[in-house]
Each structure stands twice: as C-alpha cells, then as structure tokens.
Computed example of a mutant assay.
Amino acid sequence: MELTDFFTNYTLRTITLGTAVLGAICGMLGSFAVLRKQSLLGDAISHAALPGIAIAFLITSAKDSNILLLGALVSGLIGVFWIRGIITKTHLKTDTALGLILSLFFGFGMLLLTYIQKQPNANQAGLDKYLFGQAATLVESDVRLMLIVTGISLIILLLFWKEFKLLLFDKNYALTLGFNTRFIDGLISFLIVLAIVIGLQTVGVVLMSAMLLAPAAAARQWTNSLGVMVGLAAIFGACSGVFGTAISASQPGLSTGPVIVLVAAVFVTVSFIFSPERGILFKQLRLIRNRRELELKKTLYFMYDIVRKHEDVSRPHAIRILNNFQGFTKNTLSQLAEKDWITIQGQNWSMTSTGFETAANLYNKNLPEP
C-alpha cells in the first residue's frame, strides 16, 4: 500500500474518510458521556440497537442499510428512555440501569438474529456485520450520512453549548436558572445515539463503546477546558480512524474496526502516561521532586535549630553534628548550598542569611496557633 492509494483507490478513500468522520463525531459526543460519568452509556445504547436492526429486517426483508440503521436508532432511543425511566422511577443507580438494558436488549437481539438465520431466506446473510463491524462495506452514501449527522451535531453543540456546559457541571444551578434540564439531557443522549447508530456498520455493536469513550478519555488527560477537550477528542478519534484504516489496509486479513479501537487505545495509553498534569510519568516525577524538597527543608529546619542558639548566624558548625539526623546526606548538603541556604568549607558548614530567613519561615509555619 502506498500513500497515493488513499487518493486514487475509491474503496480505501471512502473507508478512510468514513472512519475519520466517525472518530471525530464519537470523540466530540463521547466527551459528554465521560464527563457525565456515564461511560457505560455507549455500550448500553450500541447493544440496545441490535434488536432494532433485526426487527427492521424482519419487517422489510431487505438489507437496506438506511432502513436497518433507522431501526437501530428507534431501538437505541427506546433503550435510553428505559434507562432514564429506571433511574428516575426506581432506587437503582445509573450503572445498574445501564447494565440491565445492555444485557436485556442484547439478549433479545441475539435471539432475533438466531431466528433470522434459521429462516429459509438467503437474504439474511450479512446481518452479523453489525455485531463486529465491516468497514469495507462503506460507500459514499454512508460517508455523506456521517457528514450530515456530524454537521447537525456540531451545529446543535454550538447552539446549546452554554446549556450543555451548565448541565454537566452544575445541574441544580441550571434548574434554578429555569433551564429545562430534561430536554437538554435528552438532546445530549439523542446525539450520542445518532453517533453510535452511524458507527455500527463500521465498528460494530461490540466495539462501538470504545470508539465513543477512548478518544474522550485520552483528551481528558490533557486539559480542564470542555471546549479544548471536545476538540482534542475529535482529533484523537479522527486520527484513530485514519491510522487504523491505514494499518488494516497494509496487511491482508486485518479487520478495520478492531484495529481502529486498538489505535485509539494507544492514544489513551500515551495520554495516561505522558500528559503533563495527570500523566503517570509526570505525577511520579512531581512526587520524587516533592520528596526531595521535603528532605531539604527537614535538613534545613534541623540546621536552624542548631544555628538559632548562637548569636552569629554564620558561625561554622562541623558536618559530623548532622550524622545522627535521618534526613542528612552529602547530596542534601550540596543541594542546600546550590540554593544559597548554606555554605560549605571543608568539613564545616554555616547558614547564610537567606537560608536562615527561609528556615525561620518554616519554623513559624509549624508553630501552633494561639
């Protein structure tokens, strides 16, 4: 495979564009699912869409993707309605409601697929692609549909940005301002259902939740701004689609959907490790730096206890006087000297005026309040 194939090969160009658009919209809308702490929502909706696909086929006896996706949309919306009903009408928590709907709808969908497969109708072949996805079946009309849905979602996000943001971070305050929180919440859920439904053909029911959550989870590690997070999630999702398609096209027999999800998982892993604020690596580095700083200040504090008993702050003291102090090391002395808190002359040390003032501030902070 060569780079020019992405522009000259119709199938590869269509799949790449489709997966990039799908990744972008899933990243954008997945950000809201992550921030609402409803990570299982994508999984529940994608599984809830399966019986809708099967019922649409049973009614029409046709494999028209638009009709099947319409059935998936209706079924997914019913699943969301049931989830919200369980949460508001019972004492069950969100995760329990999501798990119930996921298993119930998926079990019903698998039952319908089994029934369809036993029918004497060769036309039912291929419905299983909605389970695991089959990106190779994407055509220009599917990509156009993705672009339309993405455009509509983006317009709605811009129009209701303030309301969405307020609902995410302070629902009670939104209520006091008179916002219809049920409508706003339902609108977000509807957009998420749309994104999931248009991705079923590409990634499938089983992996669709990863497409929704992975880019958003990766983006969350890099920023505290909702706008930046949504933008980064869209970029991560689009890049996952493009790189995943390229990798699957480079080797025969590689399924595009799983490869895209694996690439998205790489973005998540890199973000978890290397992001400056929340990354594991930088957290560990900050922890080591804070420990070293604490050791320095403990040693300086101990030195202050020695020095303040004498009128002359700069009076030299033998290094051996520190030998019984647990925080003392030669490296610690060197770092204290670099900070100009002490000076070292042979086997003696003395505290500078800067070091004495710093230690005095530490001492005063540790005094009990009157």
Rank of each mutant, 00 (worst) to 15 (best):
I116D: 14
I116K: 09
Q117R: 15
Q119A: 13
Q119V: 15
P120I: 09
N121C: 00
N121P: 09
N123V: 04
N123P: 13
Q124L: 00
G126H: 07
L127Y: 00
L127E: 04
D128F: 07
K129P: 11
Y130I: 03
Y130Q: 02
Y130D: 01
Y130W: 03
G133S: 03
G133P: 04
G133T: 04
Q134H: 09
Q134L: 09
Q134D: 14
A135V: 10
A135N: 03
A136Q: 08
T137A: 10
T137S: 07
L138N: 05
V139G: 14
E140T: 08
S141H: 06
S141P: 00
D142E: 12
D142I: 15
D142F: 14
V143F: 06
V143K: 06
V143N: 01
L145Y: 13
L147I: 11
L147F: 13
V149D: 01
T150H: 12
T150E: 11
I152Y: 09
S153P: 15
S153K: 11
L154S: 12
I155S: 08
I155Q: 06
L157T: 15
L157Y: 06
L159S: 15
F160G: 13
F160D: 08
W161P: 00
K162Y: 01
E163W: 10
F164V: 11
K165C: 15
L167P: 02
L167Y: 08
L168D: 08
L168I: 14
F169W: 04
D170K: 08
K171R: 04
N172F: 05
N172P: 00
L175A: 02
L175S: 00
T176C: 08
T176A: 12
L177N: 08
L177T: 14
G178S: 06
F179Y: 11
F179L: 04
N180T: 10
N180K: 06
N180M: 06
T181A: 07
F183E: 09
D185L: 05
D185A: 02
D185S: 10
G186T: 03
G186H: 03
S189W: 09
F190S: 03
L191W: 07
L191E: 04
I192K: 07
V193G: 05
V193Y: 01
V193E: 01
L194P: 08
L194W: 04
I198D: 02
I198L: 10
I198T: 10
G199Q: 02
G199P: 12
L200G: 10
Q201S: 11
T202P: 00
V203W: 02
